[in-house]
Nucleic acid binder design. Sequence first.
DNA 1: GTTAAAATCATACGAACGTATGAATCATAC
DNA 2: GTATGATTCATACGTTCGTATGATTTTAAC
Lengths: 225, 225
Amino acid sequence: MILTTHKTPLFASEKAPGATRNRVLNVAEQLFAERGLHAVSIRDITRAAGVNLGAINYHFGSKERLIGAVFERRIAPISEERLRALEAAEKTAGDVPPTLEAVLDAMFRPTVEQAMDPERGGATFGKLMVRCFVEPHTAVEEVMRRYLDPVVRRFDTVLMCVKPNLTAEDVLWRMHLLIGALHQSLLLWDRTLPDGRTLRMEPETYLKRFLAFAKTAFHASIPEA
Amino acid sequence: MILTTHKTPLFASEKAPGATRNRVLNVAEQLFAERGLHAVSIRDITRAAGVNLGAINYHFGSKERLIGAVFERRIAPISEERLRALEAAEKTAGDVPPTLEAVLDAMFRPTVEQAMDPERGGATFGKLMVRCFVEPHTAVEEVMRRYLDPVVRRFDTVLMCVKPNLTAEDVLWRMHLLIGALHQSLLLWDRTLPDGRTLRMEPETYLKRFLAFAKTAFHASIPEA
DNA sequence: GTTAAAATCATACGAACGTATGAATCATAC
DNA sequence: GTATGATTCATACGTTCGTATGATTTTAAC
């Protein structure tokens, strides 16, 4: 019996499969990053994407779920990369804990590299991520819990071995300070400052400098009392 | 000629002057900090404040202007404090530039102390400020430009004397990283983490630790190439 | 071609939005 | 008292919001 069924269709039209869905995701990411989650209506998105108003509710169910989908598309690979890099660092280190440098690299390199790669959202997603951290949205919070919490917990555990002189609270607190620093720099990445300057730099330079900053900051001794 | 006019009226009612205006400001600050600028309607505010719907447009002109007023009420004193503290540090130092520690203290102490003082908005305003940084709003941007730009420019200049081995871009970039770190910690100040922990600590402890973090981070050497 | 599912479309609904208006109420000055 | 300005109030306007619906078009399998 010969089955002529093919799962991957030969496109009769010029349109790629999921073209509408993807265009909506891209445009939504762009607009959300530029104006904020609440300030963008689904009409803004469908208009800019050149698709029908109903497209969003058809493909995503609701605006809420669209926001979740936009965020998840980028955060999922980052979380995986982070955990993979951390594991690699542990493997390299062998029986002793990995170096602080290696752990911080595993934590921040995935985000920075993604934020510098136009194919994966570039600076746009960087800004969106900051918004998702700040603007409370049920759908986003669920996605963040699912992807980010395990990462933070995992890194937290390792870092306590790397820096045994710090308490658990110290480690967590410093980690969050660095995440905040990262976000701020992503937010300002392509913004022109009041004096006309910009903070843009080469991706590799950025990564090196940020990691140097992070490593030094993390080594700060705890003040007495 | 005896004028019996008095500018400060003896209140016939129990209501303080500007009571409605102030209640609106307080409630709006609270709600904006909790839910974000765009997610709060003026009906939410007037309902929570127990005042008439028209009160906001009567006292502030528009929602936009209310947002500006809420933000300005807190950021103005902070900006003044920062500049005053920086001047004091320069005076103390005499002919040489002030220490990095003193400059960072002048920059961050006002915000932290305000964020710890319930009388001046406490943690609520800390969160609101983060939102104002992230959510673009015409009225807020104008206020931020007016108050924050001069401060950053002034500190920038001084810091370049304090750390002459850094370029202007380095100084600016590190300053923004630290501002991001500060904001993140304000945002998380009273948030319960997934494991039930919190990052709350004594104000004086917080300030000491953050300044130690900032000072160390700022001293980080620039990576080669 | 026929058929059924998937996708797109124009359109409508009720709710909530920011703002404006004019009457009612209050406080103060004479 | 009366007059005047400041404030509060109930209410209405036009717009935009997210979502739902049913018709229409497109796609893929036979």
